[in-house]
Each structure stands twice: as C-alpha cells, then as structure tokens.
Amino acid sequence: MWITSFLAVALLVALTPGANNLLALRHGMVRGFGGAMVGVCGRLVAFAVLVVAVVAGLGPLLSASEWALTIIKWAGVGYLAYLGVTILWAGFRRRGEPDEAVVEPAARERPTLSALARKEFLVAITNPKAVLIFTAFVPQFVVPAGGSVTTQLAVLGACYLVAEAVAAGAFAAAGSVIRAVRLSYRAHRRLDRATGGVLLGMAGLLATESP
C-alpha cells in the first residue's frame, strides 16, 4: 500500500512542469516521441546517480552542505541560461523563412540522440530541487517497521524513476503531436522564443532562490 501511495505522489511531483519536462516537450517536437525518450534516458541516469548517493548514505550530507548545493545551483543557473539563449537564438535565426510556410521535419534542427540525452542529464544533475527530492522527499516514505532502510530507499528510488519516465513520456508525446501538426515557420519561431524565454525565466528564479 505504501508503494502505491508513494507512486501516486511521485507521479504528481514528476508531472510538475519544469526544465526537464520542457526539454522533453521540445525534443518531441524536433525528434519525435522515440528520440525524446532516448533523451529522457539521460535524465533517468542523473536521477539514478542521486538514488545511489541516497542509498549509500550521502543524502543527508549533501542536503546539509550549503556549499555543495550552492555549486549545484549556479551550475544549473548557467546551463539553463545557456539553453534558453540557444533556443531563443534558434527562434530569431528563422526570421528569413516565409511566415506561412510549413516546417518540414527534415528541415528542422535535428540534434543527435546523444546530445538530447546529454542536455537532459546536465539539467537534471544540476537541479538542486532534484537533489532535495531524493534527499528529503523520498526518505519520508521509509517505513520504520518495513525492514532494511537501504532496501526501502532503493525501491522508492526505483519507483520514482518509473514515475519520472511516465511523466516525461507524457511531455514527449505532447511534443510529438505538435510535430505531427507540421507548424508554420511563424508558429515554430514563437514556440522557440517562448521555450527559450521560459528557460531563461527558470534560470532567473533559480538564481534568486536560497540554496
């Protein structure tokens, strides 16, 4: 029963719009559902690293270390800002294309699958909120009478990865649907600019938050 409850809560947390889910949405638009899910594997690897850290007993040490969280925070701010500027530039760079012409899939930017996975990994591993999910949120569901704490943390971590994969799949599927609609260059430019702006806004919010 406790696993079911945890999965329900974890899915709600994973579905919260954030930088990684925004990337899954955009990757679904440029590479389709399958390509976006390959990118999501990078995110899951990053989260698996955090799960291993928590199981190894490093969770409380990491969450209590102000300097470690500060380093992670500013790395995240820098990378989100970089992604935001890059995507914004892609939107403005298309200004020479006919507004009403349809963007053909082959004409779009097609980053490699490894590049998609690398972006997802870096955004996830430099997100201090992701660190706190595994060091503060997940351990709350450990049952004192449920046996080995280490085993429970490993199981809970694995369950959260499943919830994250499901949530990411929903955003990737939404992106692939948008891709199938075959947007005009004008609509695609607007989406790029909106995505870049949101990522820059997230970078700004993260920069102003306390570690």
Rank of each mutant, 00 (worst) to 15 (best):
A163Q: 02
F92S: 02
F47D: 15
T16V: 05
A145S: 13
G39T: 11
G28R: 05
A165G: 06
V49S: 13
L153H: 10
I87C: 00
A203E: 06
H188T: 10
R189K: 06
R186N: 11
G169M: 03
Y185E: 12
G78E: 10
V155K: 04
V102I: 13
A136Y: 12
G59F: 10
G42T: 03
A168Q: 09
A130L: 10
R95W: 11
E109I: 15
I72F: 01
V138D: 06
P128M: 04
L113I: 07
P111L: 13
W74T: 14
P128C: 08
A56N: 11
V54P: 13
R193T: 06
L153A: 13
V52Y: 11
A10S: 06
W89H: 11
T208G: 14
G204Y: 09
A167G: 09
L88S: 01
A46V: 08
P144C: 11
P144Q: 04
L113E: 13
T150Y: 11
A107Q: 14
Y185K: 06
L50A: 05
A180G: 13
G78T: 10
V198W: 03
G204T: 14
L199H: 01
S114C: 09
E120R: 00
N21L: 08
F33P: 12
R190P: 10
G201P: 15
V149A: 15
A14F: 03
P111H: 10
A145C: 13
S210L: 14
L22C: 15
G201I: 09
F171T: 00
A8G: 03
L88D: 00
L156C: 05
G34Q: 05
R182Y: 07
A180P: 06
D192K: 00
T151G: 10
V55G: 15
A136C: 14
R94Y: 04
V45C: 13
T126N: 08
H27L: 08
W2P: 10
G91L: 01
Q140T: 04
P17G: 03
L199P: 00
A36C: 13
A130C: 08
R179W: 04
N127H: 14
G76L: 00
A107L: 15
V9F: 00
L205F: 05
D192S: 02
A194Y: 10
L199M: 06
L205S: 12
A14Q: 10
T86L: 08
A36T: 07
